[in-house]
Design a protein around this nucleic acid. Structure first.
Lengths: 331, 331
DNA sequence: TTGAAAGCGCTAACAT
DNA sequence: ATGTTAGCGCTTTCAA
């Protein structure tokens, strides 16, 4: 077995409680005793057993983060933020992958429950009823979804859409395509509402296409549809898709941004994967992670249920005026 | 406080041990009692406290995975494999991000230690001495590095290089560039050795370039160097870099694969991010994750220290004969 | 400032 | 088949 607090106590010739205090309330033990204890602990390679500690204190110093798919760069950015914030609070983050499966999701939440002080649920795939069942099992914060009266961190991508549409409209675009991602995405719905509100106000006609897979291939596929609808700009669900669009446009000899402007949604990362003029609505995912952990830590002394909205921001990387506005009636 | 085993015992009018058994050794309790217990537990929403359980059994049912950077697709693929294999063994995976920092790495290993049954350390960044200090803290398996006499899962990318060089040589390439990634990468060194062994045997001259950042931008940067050295093919450290190369080649009007062949190293994923003819040495990262967890679970009854080598495989996506072999002396 | 002892939620002998 | 009891490693009253 590993070295426990008893070994240290014995070796330092003090009681276990003194050793414990030397670690948790150092100012309460005599400096000399403390030095001795810490030194002995160091020599023996003692590390407090956090599980045991959690059993008595009720707090573990761990934060759980559950994501539908770790391979999704969206979530890895969020995790960065969580880890950074957790670190500041001297906590560590445990990540679990739900494999895009609601059942697995519930299961890992259960497994984590007593080993963490709270869980950040990112874009949970389960329905409201299933979600309700998880409430109370552990302190929960939702990210990228509002539901079950839980505290949540949300990104105002509807406003991002507004910025994009306004920008395109100002440049003379009159007909733009929106390539949506997976149906039944809370964020997707929210974004679509933003589009429908913004388009008329900017004198822009929005052509709603999709759903498409939110991948490079999805972008390829969507491009041909968009082209056939005679738009001068496209809003892609994310940058990955946008890069697919750019690729397909190049392959079909459509020049960007002269003949077609492309806007994606994402954190900055992905857009560094192309040299083409890709404009992006920046989603502050790292900040979202930080905020989620913030909520979790605050929640220790539970207050009113909270929603935190994070702003999104248009990052323009090219002038996107259409060479020749396409008449609305074109088809 | 949450509902504990005592609540269930009280409500079901049995002793705590019966409740415990109903969960851990169901066949040992009378079917009728068991039904009752499980039903009551269900109603009360009881979930065993895994931390407490771990304290007594010494096993938690959790597997820890530590990666230098979750945003790296290499590691998310590994994690997929770990999670899948863990799941089969009715374990769950806790992931921790070491933020590319050896200190953080040691810290999270310590934090995880007693809350998991073992830890998979992916491409650990710390030196051998630091690594030694972690041994014993928890069962450890290394992935993508051999060190400290620990069990390890390794990918035979040296052989992948051999396959690539052989392939290029057979097509008539006589001078190829190798774009290396970060220096001091165990895998990078190993791969370079493979290159130096394979090149002469295939009558190919290898131009060793780098180190470069293993990114899209790194690929851009490396391309100009490679072009100046008059090679007809490049082996890029990974697919991300390879895509940078492809982009830069296109920008400089070099046609692929007629004038230049590009080979990357990676799992399949990334190469789906381009429509250009990218040949890849496939690294079986998901399998690596599975294998690592395997080792961890076997290690319960510790045997001799083990290294597991996984094969890599060349996936050719285009014919890559140089239009006109460039004389070796060109510069 | 330190020690002794109770107990966190659970499992594993040992009884019955 | 079920109950009783002794801890797992730690923190935290309560005394000294």
């Amino acid at each position: 077995m590993a070295v426990t607090i008893h070994h240290v106590a014995r070796a330092a010739e003090v009681s276990v409680s003194t050793v414990s205090r030397a670690f948790t309330v150092p100012e309460m033990v005599h400096p000399q005793t403390r030095r001795k204890v810490l030194q002995v602990a160091e020599e023996l390679g003692y590390q407090p057993n956090r599980a045991a500690r959690g059993l008595v204190t009720g707090r573990t110093g761990n934060i759980g983060v559950v994501v539908p798919d770790v391979a999704n760069p969206f979530f890895s950015a969020v995790l960065k933020g969580c880890a950074a914030r957790a670190r500041e609070a001297r906590h560590v983050v445990f990540l679990a992958d739900a494999a895009e499966d609601p059942r697995v999701e519930a299961e890992v939440v259960g497994a984590m429950a007593k080993q963490v002080d709270g869980i950040v649920l990112c874009s949970p795939r389960e329905d409201s009823a299933q979600l309700d069942r998880l409430v109370g099992i552990a302190p929960l914060v939702l990210l990228n979804r509002a539901d079950s009266g839980l505290p949540a961190v949300l990104m105002d991508s509807a406003d991002g859409v507004r910025q994009a549409v306004e920008h395109l409209g100002a440049l003379g675009h009159r007909r733009i395509a929106h390539l949506s991602g997976p149906a039944s995405s809370w964020a997707g719905e929210h974004r679509l509402r933003g589009l429908r509100a913004a388009a008329p106000a900017c004198d822009v006609e929005a052509v709603e296409l999709g759903p498409f897979p939110p991948t490079f291939q999805g972008g390829i596929q969507a491009t041909d549809l968009a082209l056939a609808r005679g738009v001068t700009a496209v809003l892609a669900f994310n940058d990955l898709m946008a890069i697919g669009v750019l690729n397909r446009l190049a392959a079909r000899g459509v020049s960007v941004p002269e003949e077609m402007s492309v806007v994606g949604f994402d954190d900055i990362e992905m857009s560094s994967m192309t040299t083409q003029p890709l404009t992006t609505v920046r989603m502050p995912m790292e900040a979202a992670g930080r905020t989620a952990v913030d909520l979790l830590l605050d929640e220790q002394q539970p207050g009113p249920q909270l929603q935190r909205w994070l702003p999104t921001q248009l990052i323009v990387r090219s002038t996107t005026a259409p060479r020749m506005p396409v008449p609305v009636a074109t088809r």
